[in-house]
Deep mutational scan, measured.
Amino acid sequence: NQASVVANQLIPIQTALTLVMMRSEVVTPVGIPAEDIPRLVSMQVNRAVPLGTTLMPDMVKGYA
């Protein structure tokens, strides 16, 4: 099973992502693949992302 990127904390809207905000976890449905974590650093979320939420491509500006 492929690991996805999951929020390690509440990430407020417009926040630039850092490594400490994300973790990898095998979840359903599958979100952004964990191997993309380095690419996500400094990208902004376009909505508030609660703790434990799987990051989906449409939540990160410039990802999809």
Rank of each mutant, 00 (worst) to 15 (best):
R47D: 07
V26I: 14
A3R: 11
D58M: 09
S24K: 13
P38F: 13
I32L: 04
M22G: 00
Q9K: 12
M59Y: 11
S4V: 02
L40M: 06
E35P: 06
T28G: 06
V5S: 03
Q44F: 15
V5H: 01
P29D: 05
K61G: 08
A3T: 07
V41W: 00
L40A: 00
I37C: 04
Q9D: 07
M59C: 05
V6I: 12
P29C: 05
A48F: 11
M21G: 02
Q44L: 12
L40S: 00
T54M: 04
M59Q: 03
V27R: 15
T28P: 01
I11D: 01
G52I: 04
Y63G: 03
E35N: 13
V49G: 02
I13W: 15
T54P: 05
Q9G: 05
L40Y: 02
N8L: 05
Q44N: 10
A34M: 06
N46H: 08
I13N: 14
V60R: 00
N8D: 13
I11C: 03
G31P: 02
V5E: 01
M21L: 05
Q9P: 01
L40T: 00
V26K: 09
I11G: 01
I37Y: 02
P57Y: 09
P33D: 05
P12I: 05
I13K: 15
A16P: 15
M43C: 07
L40G: 03
L51G: 12
I32A: 02
P29L: 05
Q2T: 14
P50S: 13
L10R: 13
R39H: 09
S42T: 15
N46L: 13
V6E: 02
V30N: 13
N8T: 10
L40F: 01
P38H: 13
P12M: 07
V49H: 03
R39G: 10
T18V: 06
T18F: 04
S24F: 07
D58A: 12
M22I: 09
R47Y: 10
M22V: 08
Q44C: 07
V6K: 03
Q44V: 15
A34P: 05
R23G: 08
T15H: 07
R47M: 12
G31T: 01
G62K: 06
N8E: 06
G52R: 03
V30L: 14
S24P: 13
L51F: 15
A16K: 12
P29W: 04
P29H: 05
I37G: 03
A48Y: 12
A34D: 06
S42V: 04
Q2K: 14
L10G: 11
P12W: 04
T15E: 08
N1T: 13
S4H: 01
V49C: 05
L55Q: 01
